[in-house]
């Protein structure tokens, strides 16, 4: 599997990307990462939430409680304008980085 460092470096980008589609709650984010990566990426609660809280306190994402009939209320996270800018920047950097690494590896 992937090293913790590698995973850790990408988590912010992953979360931002998922939230770019629509607001989601914490459990959903965790599940989505696992299913979309076909089980190859798994983040524990202890890694995911500190990242969410850090991005929230930096103002990249915002959260609010939403109640739906017949369900527990849940805390939904969504991107802020600043978050969108960061996402664009991070995506650009990630692509540049992976492209650079691919060049070296001879892809």
């Amino acid at each position: 599997m992937f090293s913790a460092e590698l995973k850790k470096g990408s988590l912010e980008l992953i979360v931002l990307t998922l939230l770019d589609e629509r607001p989601r709650h914490g459990y959903e984010i965790g599940q989505l990462i696992e299913t979309r990566s076909r089980g190859q990426l798994q983040f524990r609660v202890t890694s995911l939430y500190p990242v969410l809280y850090r991005m929230e306190s930096r103002g990249w994402i915002a959260s609010r409680w939403v109640e739906r009939a017949g369900e527990h209320r849940r805390n939904y996270y969504s991107l802020t304008a600043k978050g969108r800018r960061i996402l664009a920047e991070e995506q650009r950097r990630w692509r540049a980085f992976t492209a650079a690494v691919d060049l070296v590896l001879g892809g």
């Binding site: 939430y49 849940r74 805390n75």
Partner: peptide, 9 residues
């Protein structure tokens, strides 16, 4: 908020 959210998780 943190406690409730983690409990839900």
């Amino acid at each position: 908020k943190i406690i409730e959210e983690l409990a839900l998780q």
